[in-house]
Nucleic acid binder design. Structure first.
Lengths: 356, 356
DNA sequence: CCCCGAAATCGAACCGGTTCGATTCGCGGC
DNA sequence: GCCGCGAATCGAACCGGTTCGATTTCGGGG
């Protein structure tokens, strides 16, 4: 395989001139550049990426961390697929590559982050689905390496892209309230995720805006699995709680909820309306089709890479207190399970407030 | 950041000795090794992966190609998720990393393969879901780089891991035939994939073994999408063809088929039995739960990496005519939609043959 | 006591690029 | 005709490891 020295020799110039010419730098005469490029073409020369990295200290590799408990991988496969597509598109456009790091716990994330940072295997990190207080924040800060989170760790000034999950919660609650439901249950995700906390806050606000009381008994939390969601709803039904709608934090939980309701002789949407979040393929094809909130994960992925590259190419490290953030809007996807038309955007539900 | 020269200096030895000591090579006295390791620890030294790659010519990166048409990404998200998990596990164990290359067409694959090979960005390639005659085989052969396919390209001596898709087809046909069905339709995938051809062959054999005639009219082909499967089955129903079971090449197609059947007033499994392939989350939670064939994709992923590493570390290139292959067995997952118990493994269906 | 060979260590070259400081070249101005 | 300057080119150092051939050290045998 031809190296730059071969090219230089054939073009009759020095190695340094060849390098300048090949990289389109100024200070090379047109005639020389032409000769160098010609030689490169003739020798089928292609620069060695590793040598380049060593020389200029840039790997052009972005490390992507995806957490998987097995059930999570399956339940969110569609979500991660979309995320990935967006990231890949953004990276490719700018000549970057993605390396993939599947991790099963935050401790493992911490460990792998450490080895990657130390061995200088990538120019920056993208960490998806952080919990509220990830254990590796100190490590990241010390390393002073560009990072972007997909999802928001609490009380950290690291850059992140995320949906506005308060808005997601609010959207869901309002949609069901607008359809006339007075007792709307919220089957939330685990509390260790920031998105769960944010959505709960949004749910609360949405109810308030429609003058509905916030009832703690109607807020349930379950893992992001069908099984756990099922048993949670079964328990709620057994306790005799009254409600006419369930807002679920993920599609897979909605499926569990639907099974529980059916098992209890309740039909959807006639007896209970159901609204989910994620818009994975599942919901479109389910019977009944499940209304859900689309998080536009491909956009999320695209923006995360863009933000990371801004840091890398701007020479700014995430630890430098760059508190950039991007919020991706989410949108309702109305389907049969919620038994309702989209909330009329014109409608003003009233004053809300404590008096509700 | 400390380099190996810093370590050598602090330990009072030459750089070369430090390198030997750090890599656990023989020919270094115990005393010296101790001192070097001690120095490394004190300086918090971690070798630079890029420098290492340049020096020894090994990147320790495996390039993974995943094709995505958008619909495919969604319909097979579970499948790729499992594949990925297996690959990652195998790679991690041996100190390798995965780089991810999402491609939308075989032409794009060809192009990206070329740039990766040329820039020496990875030690080997894993290419998933090749078509029957991928356009980049020549490129691969010329590059003489280790490659493993996940899925079998026809008439190529490149190494691959795959399910035994003839067996998958046979399994499906036999299962339905054993339940007493005489007219079993096969909603196959696109003919450009080797797995489609193999499954068709298996389906034919399965029927034969039960003495059932092979009827071309009962073999339909559709894209791996819900929509296309739906319209294909709708057309079949409209044509008045008689059949009492459908064997679908993927879960997502089964969902489309179910919708078409329901729309035609047929219920599953009472009027028509349905059996699918893939065992994605979808099938478990669908109503009715969909019987399917599990392809054990995690194992497929694990084996593909193992096979690739065997080539890399054995110094054998895929183009050297190494016709290794691994077949991963598949297993039936019986659920309501097929309206039947597992085929009795004891049962011998008879002589089969033309006379059936 | 000297020589020889094996073990331990070292120095230098190398991997394939980039970059910086020095050098050469051509040209205009005085 | 000489000086100075900017443009073009060059040589060498550098990135941070590995490896190979040469050199030193040490112990044992003659």
């Amino acid at each position: 395989m031809a190296t730059i020295r071969d090219v230089a020799k054939r073009a009759g110039v020095s190695v340094s001139t060849a390098s300048l010419a090949l990289n389109g730098r100024p200070l090379v005469s047109e005639e020389t550049r032409r000769r160098v490029l010609q030689a490169a073409r003739e020798l089928d020369y292609h620069p060695n990426a590793v040598a380049k990295s060593l020389a200029d200290g840039r790997t052009r590799v972005l490390a992507l961390f995806i957490p998987v408990t097995l059930e999570h991988l399956f339940s969110s496969a569609g979500f991660f697929g979309g995320l990935l597509k967006g990231m890949h598109r953004a990276a490719l456009q700018r000549g970057y590559h993605l390396s993939l790091h599947v991790v099963e716990s935050e401790e493992e994330t911490a460990e792998r982050v450490r080895t990657i940072v130390r061995s200088k295997r990538s120019d920056g990190l993208i960490i998806t689905n952080p919990t509220v207080h990830p254990p590796y924040l100190g490590e990241l800060r010390r390393a002073a390496i560009p990072v972007v989170f997909v999802g928001r760790p609490e009380e950290s000034d690291f850059p992140y892209v995320d949906n506005d999950n308060v808005e997601v919660g609010r959207l869901g609650a309002r949609q069901l309230a607008a359809a006339g439901h007075k007792r709307i249950a919220f089957l939330n995700g685990p509390n260790r995720f920031t998105f769960s906390r944010d959505r709960l806050e949004g749910y609360r606000r949405g109810l308030l805006e429609y003058g509905l009381p916030f009832d703690e008994d109607l807020v349930w939390s379950s893992d992001l699995t069908e099984e756990h969601a099922y048993s949670t709803v079964v328990a709620a039904l057994a306790s005799g709680l009254a409600f006419s709608a369930i807002f679920c934090a993920s599609d897979i939980q909605a499926v569990g909820a639907l099974r529980a309701l059916r098992g209890h002789g309740l039909s959807v949407p006639e007896n209970v309306a159901v609204l989910a979040v994620n818009n994975t393929a599942l919901t479109r094809y389910y019977q009944p089709p499940i209304a859900t909130i689309d998080l536009h994960e491909e956009k999320l992925g695209y923006l995360s890479v863009e933000m990371l590259l801004r840091q890398i190419e701007g020479g700014v490290s995430a630890a430098a207190g760059a508190d950039w953030q991007a919020r991706v809007p989410s949108s309702l996807v109305i389907r049969e399970s919620c038994g309702c038309a989209p909330e009329d955007p014109e409608r003003n539900p009233g004053e809300g407030g404590e008096s509700g």
